[in-house]
């Protein structure tokens, strides 16, 4: 397993944000974390990234406990992109992506050709090669999001945690990000865990899905099995059904929007 955790529990004051959370991600696996707002997706990702200390349980990366690793050791193995990160105003795309190499160059080592190559690859993979000199504050929301993904890619970590990477992007960029995620997992064997709101995107791109509800794991398995459980309707409090659109594609959740039409008289 490249990333795993067992019995993770996190409390914020009196509120239990995450209770006894388990996860095991294989190399090259794409894992979706889904669940309603406030169900603990971001908390789970931050605990996996070692950014918050869990009250109970442990998280391991490549078999070693994250709790005892230095930030740089973690950053070489795991890249984490938080929701809506902010950067200094005058920073350019290139400067941001460069920061992604800190885990490798550290405080003193100079940038070697392999660092420059990683930066160039990260920019190219996100379609930002021509944007390196642009200021982040001149970019559209979608371009800025790609710049941050690019910085995470420059880290060249074998595990990538993304917190709602497609939120605030239009559908075109959403698909672009998902394609990129898929390519990384298949071509480079990168393990990916991402919190995502669009259920159908999660169903179609992920190898496995974890469903969180009130900080507890409600489901852990393949998308097709999730469709058979009826948990989606229950957890998200909606009515709908899974329909098979194409023979080999995962089923598509068709949500009923007719709740607010007036009842037939």
């Amino acid at each position: 397993m490249s990333l795993s955790c067992s019995g993770l529990s996190v409390t914020y004051g009196a509120r239990k944000a995450l209770t006894n959370f388990n996860l095991a991600v294989a190399p090259g696996e794409v894992r979706a974390l889904i669940g309603p707002n406030g169900s603990g997706k971001s908390t789970a990702l931050q605990a996996l990234a070692g950014l918050i200390r869990p009250d109970e349980g442990r998280a391991d990366i490549d078999g070693a406990p994250i709790a005892v690793m230095s930030r740089r050791d973690i950053a070489r193995r795991l890249a984490f992109l938080p929701q809506q990160p902010s950067a200094p105003d005058e920073m350019t795309v290139g400067q941001l992506v460069r920061q992604g190499r800190f885990a490798h160059v550290g405080l003193f080592r100079s940038y070697r050709p392999e660092d420059e190559a990683a930066i160039a690859w990260a920019l190219e993979s996100t379609g930002l090669s021509d944007f390196a000199e642009r200021g982040l504050n001149e970019l559209s929301g979608g371009e800025r999001q790609r710049a941050w993904i690019s910085a995470a890619l420059a880290q060249e970590a074998q595990t990538l945690l993304l917190d709602e990477p497609t939120s605030f992007l239009d559908i075109g960029y959403q698909i672009e990000v998902l394609d990129l995620v898929h390519r990384l997992s298949r071509d480079r064997g990168v393990s990916i865990v991402m919190a995502i709101h669009d259920l159908n995107q999660a169903m179609s791109i992920c190898d496995r899905i974890s469903l969180l509800n009130h900080g507890m794991l409600a489901f852990d398995g393949e998308p097709r099995d999730l469709a058979a459980t009826g948990l989606i309707e229950e957890v998200f409090r909606v009515k709908g059904q899974f329909v098979q659109i194409a023979p080999h594609a995962p089923p598509h959740f068709d949500v009923e929007l007719a709740r607010w039409t007036s009842p037939p008289s």
Binding site: L51, R71, A75, A79, S86, P88, V105, L107, F108, Q155
Partner: peptide
């Protein structure tokens, strides 16, 4: 000069700087 890179990273929010590998 020794603080140059850490100062660069300290300009980000703590979770971002730590994710990049800085002992914040």
């Amino acid at each position: 000069p020794l603080l140059r890179r850490s100062l660069d990273l300290l300009r980000f929010d703590a979770p971002v700087a730590r994710s990049f590998g800085l002992g914040y």
